[in-house]
Simulated assay, not measured.
Amino acid sequence: MRMRRPFRVLVTTLLAATAFSTTACGTDSGSGGASPDRAEAAGDPTPAAGAKGVPATLRFRGTTLDGEPFDGATLAGKPVALWFWAPWCGTCRGQAPQAAELARTYQGKVHVVGVAGLDATGAMKSFVSSRKVGGFPHVADEQGAVWKKFGITQQSSFVLLDGKGKVVHSGVPAGPGELDDLVAKLAG
């Protein structure tokens, strides 16, 4: 099976970062996801605006598919559901309606943010339009900085953070029911 070039680059980068992180640090936070120290170190080196008091997991910046600046610090104080997807991913296409429904159902209670990667911005915009998932923000993560920050190695993955920024789930949900249950629990 031939991997697309951007995916090979991301996988190679993630494997190298994981190897470095394991040998340099040798500890696991046990948080069920990215540790705040690892997450902050892997993200944008420029602190997010208003980073004081913002959990390390939310200290990242990017640009939305609309070309607007995105600051993860704006997510602080509420639970967050990050959906890591790629435009050519069949599973992502299948999960798009559920992601859109989660954003509608939990509007004002849980921030839902798409993190698009592994392709060019044009393909990402086309995906959002064709899959009708434009009701929530999508970060264009062409370089994979946010993917690396959260230790994501495959699409379609979700990272769920509680209102304090602690990762409570990271990975591929076992099915739509599990994702619904996890987000409902976050919303309280």
Rank of each mutant, 00 (worst) to 15 (best):
R38C: 13
G177T: 15
R2V: 14
G62A: 09
P97E: 01
W85R: 04
K185M: 04
G165Q: 00
V159E: 00
G72K: 01
C25W: 14
T13N: 13
R93P: 10
S170G: 06
S35F: 00
A73W: 02
Q143L: 08
G151S: 10
K125A: 11
L58C: 05
R59N: 15
F7N: 10
F20V: 09
G108M: 04
E40H: 13
L186I: 05
G43D: 07
E142Q: 07
H169E: 10
R8W: 11
A81Y: 11
R8G: 08
G26D: 15
G177Q: 13
P36R: 08
T57A: 02
S129Y: 06
F158N: 04
G175F: 02
W85M: 07
G175N: 14
T105N: 07
E68C: 06
L75I: 03
T105G: 12
V110D: 01
D66P: 05
L160F: 07
A48E: 00
T121I: 12
G94M: 14
S21Q: 13
V133I: 09
G144T: 09
V139E: 04
S35N: 03
A56I: 08
V110T: 02
P47V: 15
L65P: 08
A34E: 09
W85V: 08
W147V: 10
A99I: 10
A51T: 13
P173I: 08
K185N: 12
M124V: 03
V139P: 01
T153G: 06
T18S: 10
P173G: 01
G134D: 12
